[in-house]
Simulated scan of single mutants.
Amino acid sequence: MSRSLLPGAPLDPGLQPERTRMAWSRTSLAFVANGALLVHAGHVPDGWWYMLPGCAVMAAGCVVYAVGLLRHRQVYRAVRAGTPVSGDSAIRATLLTAVAACVLAAAVLLGRP
């Protein structure tokens, strides 16, 4: 039942879920770090609203981390059961969030006095 890319090598069912967890963690860290940079870039006197996009991106990073935890569990269960891992809606939603973060970053940097 367990297969590997190398003949005779055992399949470690813990590797794929761990790679998934680490990838989602790195993605969420990137969101939070870029959100912090946006907050810093939007910090101007009497212009607190310029920091709102950065706060939104940091909040999105927290959501991405939570989705990553759920995705880790899903992948772990699928690998343990030997079933294919399906469902790419979380990946598409993260992509759309990243595009929105880029648009917000451009708005902050271009609209800053």
Score class of each variant (00 low, 15 high):
Ser2Leu: 10
Arg3Met: 13
Ser4Thr: 08
Leu5Asn: 06
Pro7Gln: 07
Ala9Tyr: 10
Ala9His: 10
Pro10Lys: 12
Gln16Arg: 13
Pro17Val: 09
Pro17His: 05
Arg19Phe: 12
Thr20Trp: 04
Met22Gly: 06
Ala23Ile: 02
Trp24Thr: 05
Ser25Pro: 00
Ser25Lys: 14
Arg26Ser: 09
Arg26Ala: 13
Ala30Lys: 08
Ala30Met: 10
Phe31Val: 04
Ala33Ser: 14
Leu37Ala: 15
Leu37Gln: 14
Leu38Asn: 02
His40Asp: 13
Pro45Lys: 11
Leu52Lys: 08
Pro53Glu: 05
Gly54Cys: 07
Val57Cys: 05
Met58Cys: 08
Ala59Val: 11
Ala60Gly: 11
Ala60Asp: 09
Gly61Lys: 02
Cys62Thr: 09
Val63Gly: 01
Val64Ala: 15
Ala66Met: 10
Leu69Arg: 15
Leu69His: 06
Arg71Ser: 12
Arg71Glu: 14
His72Asp: 11
His72Phe: 14
Arg73Met: 09
Arg73Thr: 10
Arg73Trp: 07
Gln74Pro: 02
Gln74Ile: 02
Val75Gln: 04
Val75Leu: 01
Ala78Met: 07
Ala78Phe: 04
Val79Met: 09
Ala81Met: 03
Ala81Pro: 04
Gly82Val: 07
Thr83His: 08
Pro84Val: 14
Gly87Trp: 00
Asp88Ile: 08
Asp88Trp: 03
Asp88Cys: 08
Ala90Phe: 08
Arg92Trp: 14
Ala93Leu: 14
Leu95Asp: 08
Leu96Asp: 04
Thr97Arg: 07
Val99Tyr: 00
Val99Thr: 01
Leu104Trp: 10
Leu104Thr: 03
Ala105Ser: 11
Ala106Tyr: 00
Val108Thr: 13
Gly111His: 03
Gly111Lys: 06
